[in-house]
Structure formats: structure tokens, C-alpha cells
Amino acid sequence: MEYLRYGECGIRIVFGDTIDPAINSRVINYYRHLKSKEITGIIDIVPSFNACLIIFDNTQIEFLRLLNTLRENEAEAVSPIESKPQIHEIPVRYGGEYGPDMGFVSSYTGLSEKEIVHIHASTVYTVYTIGFIPGFPYLGVLDKRLFVPRLTTPRTSVPAGSVGLAQLQTGIYTFESPGGWQIIGRTDMRLFDYNNPPYSLLQTGDRVRFIPV
């Protein structure tokens, strides 16, 4: 792992340079340890596929002091946490009005709609990171047979609950928002509730399985 400065208020801790379940699980371990430490001056921690961004306030803690604190915690923070990941089952209506890009995905991959649904719903995905909009999970790894590019022109509005594909990832739009992923279905499940902690049903490191309904 590498500690890299990013602007005045960021430290990137980079664990690798590929999308890889083993690298991501080290990121998640590290993030959980660090979050539990509640170090003064750290404002936010953003775990992602292969890195953890620490956002700090340099008027509360100097960069070098924070870096030392992080190094002192390193051995503990990279040791694996023994815990069973949480698995969430998410019901999805595939195709039709809920999956406007099903036709494109079918012609691009050469698979029938039935095959696409079967392949998409038979993997247990890992939440690699959450972001872009609150609660939006980047799920991987998608079966290679379902690899599709993003839309050339993103939609200005994608309905909340839409399930999409982009390259080797799948994800769920938690709010109505603009978006460029290929939409194959929709869930009625509410994944983000800003009134009730922990707000996001899915947390980085959780597992997700889609159930066709």
C-alpha cells in the first residue's frame, strides 16, 4: 500500500491498480478500522475499488502528524476482520418498461433476455464502493458475458430503483438522476432513507443477490 498526497486536504491510500476482490477487501478492512478510530481532523473516509481517500481538515491536524498516526495504525488496520459479510436479496422486475436497454444488451451480447436475467441473478456481488449519488452501489464482478459499454449519450433522467450495467459492473440507481448505465430492470426496494440511520441499506463490503420477480 502507498500513501499519496492529494491536494491540501486529501491522502489517498492506494492498495493496487486493478479492480480485484482481494484488493477491495483490504480497502474495506482498512476503512472499517480507521473509521472506528475516530481520529480528530479526519472529516470523511471514502473507500473505493482499490483505494481509500481520507479527507482531513488541515487546520485541525497537520498532514505529517496525520500521516504518522496513519502509519502507527497501519499494522492493525490491514489485519483482516473476521466477520461474515451481510447478504441482501434485492427483488428485480427485468425487461419491458423497467429495463429499456434490455434489447440493446441482448443484441450486444448475443444472449436472450432469459439468459441475461439468469446470468445477472446467479452471481453474488460485492459492494465495491458507494457513491456518485447517495447509496448507489458499484457492484462487481459482473459475468464477462454481460459486458456492455455505457450509453453514448447519458439519459437526463433514470428512475429510482433502476438496475444497470456498465462494463464489468452492475449498480442500482437509489434516486432518480441522470445516468449512463444500460438499464435492464427495476426494484421497488428503497435503498436509501435519509431519515433513518444507517441511511444506506447497502454498505461497502456487503453482498448483493438479485431475485427476478
Partner: peptide
């Protein structure tokens, strides 16, 4: 709104 960037809240 701070402390929730890990669940995508800016």
C-alpha cells in the same frame, strides 16, 4: 453535511 461520504452523501 460531513461524515457520510462513505455512503455517497456529499
Amino acid at each position: 453535511r460531513y461524515g457520510f461520504a462513505d455512503i455517497g452523501v456529499p
